Structure formats: structure tokens, C-alpha cells
Simulated assay, not measured.
Amino acid sequence: MKRIQIILFLLISAFAFSQTLSSKLDKQTLALGEPGNLHIHISNLQAKDVLSAPKNELLPFHFEEIKDSINKQADTYDRIIEFAVYEEGKFTIPALDFRINGQLLKTIPYDIEVINTAQKDDKINDIMKNKEVHLDVQDYWQMYKWYILGVLILLAVIFIIYQLIKYGRRKKSDPIVMTNQTLKELEKLKKKNYIEDGNYRLFYVELLDITRKFITKQYKIPADVLLTDDLIDVIKLNNTISAENEKTIEDIFLRGDLVKFAKVFPDQQNMQDDFEQMKSFVKRSSKDLEVEQLRTGV
């Protein structure tokens, strides 16, 4: 008997101190866009916190929340959501979660039907006549200024990139740049000590290769694909290379071919002289181009 009394006491205490959640929907049939109200009430809070979805985020996707008001007192909690639905059909407000000190309480779900009350022959009147608005230049600027600025920035970036590419190409093809680059290649050839070692064949092979590449890029003459005799003829007809430089190229190229085919055997002095002559030709080449530019007016 005593045990039954204890159980009854515990049950009564639990009901006496537990929170009660109730909810009320004012309409279960709504017209399109007609406001509805859902009222959620919790009693016997005993100053405990209530956790639920944030304001304007309690109802599902199709429900457009117009107003979401919360009134919390020490012992009660009231939340009233005013909403509207802008699609025809049947929709459900699911059971909504509310937590009080870790205890989960849920509302009952509601089914709502949304109907279109407009008739086919209903006349629709404008609330007010359309107004003409005159825009000036300042108004158009405010509307489109970011688009205009964006286009201008894009054009500026394209122009800068174009100039950088153009400058880079011009710099690489500059006669002085090509001259310095070839002089460096000649110095590398000298450091291989072909002259001191008497390795005349490799010396002339590399010397002529360097010179052919230089003539091709500096004078725009296809020296890298022409035979020696053809190259000499083209140089003489071209009139870009000075007579002094023509003679230097002709002498060294002809001697180089004879060396490569083992018809002559130059000594160190001959090799040294040819190296210095070719080096001088490379240095003088920029003057040839300056004269050509003056002659053609470029």
C-alpha cells in the first residue's frame, strides 16, 4: 500500500511540474495569399529556456511567414506566426520541435488546403495607374556605372597585356639584344679551347653554326637553311650587310667549308684571326641595321 502511494505521489509531482505545450491553427482552408495564424503556447515553464527554430524559419518552404512574434514570461511562452501560401493545393505544417531543458516537446501536425477564389470572369482593377518616370544622365549612371567601370577595367587589362607581349617580343628581337647574346655564345666557344687544342674542325663547325643563327635572326636572311654559296649570293643581293661584313662572312664561311671537308688545315693563328673577325662582324651588325632603317625610312 505504501509503495502505491509513493508511485501516485511521483506521478502527481511529474504532472504538476511538467510543461504543457498546445497549438492552435485559426483556419485550415485558405484562399491564395490569405493570412493564417498558428498560435503555440507553453505553460508551467518555471523560468526555463525554450529552444526552437529562429524567427521566420519555423514553417516549411511553401509557407511565407509574414510575422513571427514571441512573448516569453517566467511561466509561459507564446509564439504567434502569421503566414500565407501563394500556391494552390494541400500542404502540411509538420510537428514542430520545442526543447525545454533538454526535454523535447512537439506540436500536432496540421493539414491546410489552399484554394483560388478568383472566378474566370472577374474583372481585375489596378489599384493605381502606372506612373511614368523620367530618368536623366545621373540616374542612368547610377544604374549602369558598375557595368561601365567593369568594361573599362577589362579594356585596360587587355591593353596592358597587349603592350607587355608587344614589348617582350620587341625586346627579344632587338638588334642589341641579339648581338649581346651571340657574343656570349662566341665566348663560350672560345672557352672550349678548340684553338689551343688544334681541334679546327669542331671549332669551324660551331663558329659557322653560331654565325648562321645570328644572320638568320639579325638580318632576317635564312642562313640556317642555305648552302654557303647560296648564302653568299643572297647576302650580296640583299644590300643590308655592309661590304666589309660581306667579305668577312664570305672568307670565313668558305674557309670553314674547306676545313670541314679536310681540304685545308689552318693553324692556331688562322683560327684566332677568324674568331676575332667574326666577333667584330657581330659587333658591327647593328650599324648595318641602322643604315638600312635610314635608307628605307622605317
Rank of each mutant, 00 (worst) to 15 (best):
residue 178 M to F: 10
residue 180 N to T: 11
residue 180 N to G: 12
residue 181 Q to P: 07
residue 182 T to L: 02
residue 185 E to V: 02
residue 186 L to V: 00
residue 186 L to T: 00
residue 186 L to I: 01
residue 187 E to T: 13
residue 187 E to M: 09
residue 189 L to F: 07
residue 189 L to W: 05
residue 190 K to H: 07
residue 193 N to Y: 02
residue 193 N to D: 05
residue 194 Y to G: 09
residue 196 E to M: 09
residue 197 D to L: 12
residue 198 G to E: 06
residue 199 N to A: 14
residue 200 Y to N: 03
residue 200 Y to L: 00
residue 200 Y to H: 04
residue 200 Y to P: 00
residue 201 R to Q: 09
residue 202 L to D: 14
residue 202 L to R: 13
residue 204 Y to N: 03
residue 204 Y to I: 04
residue 206 E to K: 10
residue 207 L to Q: 05
residue 208 L to T: 08
residue 208 L to Y: 00
residue 210 I to R: 03
residue 211 T to S: 15
residue 211 T to A: 14
residue 212 R to G: 09
residue 214 F to V: 08
residue 216 T to S: 15
residue 216 T to R: 13
residue 216 T to Q: 14
residue 217 K to M: 07
residue 217 K to P: 02
residue 218 Q to M: 15
residue 218 Q to C: 13
residue 218 Q to D: 11
residue 218 Q to S: 14
residue 219 Y to E: 01
residue 220 K to W: 10
residue 220 K to S: 15
residue 220 K to T: 14
residue 225 V to L: 09
residue 227 L to R: 10
residue 227 L to S: 11
residue 228 T to E: 08
residue 228 T to L: 08
residue 228 T to C: 08
residue 229 D to P: 02
residue 230 D to I: 07
residue 231 L to G: 03
residue 232 I to K: 11
residue 232 I to M: 11
residue 234 V to K: 15
residue 234 V to L: 15
residue 235 I to N: 01
residue 235 I to K: 01
residue 235 I to S: 00
residue 237 L to G: 09
residue 238 N to K: 09
residue 238 N to M: 06
residue 240 T to D: 01
residue 241 I to P: 02
residue 241 I to S: 04
residue 242 S to C: 03
residue 243 A to W: 07
residue 243 A to T: 14
residue 243 A to H: 11
residue 245 N to D: 08
residue 246 E to R: 14
residue 246 E to S: 11
residue 247 K to H: 14
residue 247 K to S: 14
residue 248 T to E: 10
residue 249 I to P: 06
residue 250 E to T: 13
residue 251 D to T: 15
residue 251 D to I: 13
residue 253 F to W: 00
residue 253 F to Q: 01
residue 254 L to W: 06
residue 254 L to V: 13
residue 256 G to Q: 01
residue 256 G to P: 03
residue 256 G to F: 03
residue 256 G to V: 00
residue 256 G to M: 01
residue 257 D to A: 12
residue 257 D to R: 11
residue 258 L to M: 04
residue 259 V to H: 01
residue 262 A to Y: 12
residue 262 A to W: 08
residue 262 A to S: 15
residue 262 A to V: 12
residue 263 K to P: 11
residue 264 V to L: 05
residue 264 V to S: 03
residue 265 F to E: 09
residue 266 P to S: 05
residue 266 P to C: 04
residue 267 D to T: 00
residue 267 D to N: 04
residue 270 N to F: 12
residue 271 M to V: 05
residue 273 D to V: 13
residue 274 D to A: 00
residue 274 D to E: 00
residue 277 Q to I: 06
residue 279 K to G: 02
residue 280 S to W: 02
residue 280 S to Y: 07
residue 281 F to S: 08
residue 281 F to W: 09
residue 282 V to W: 05
residue 282 V to G: 04
residue 285 S to M: 07
residue 286 S to T: 12
residue 286 S to F: 06
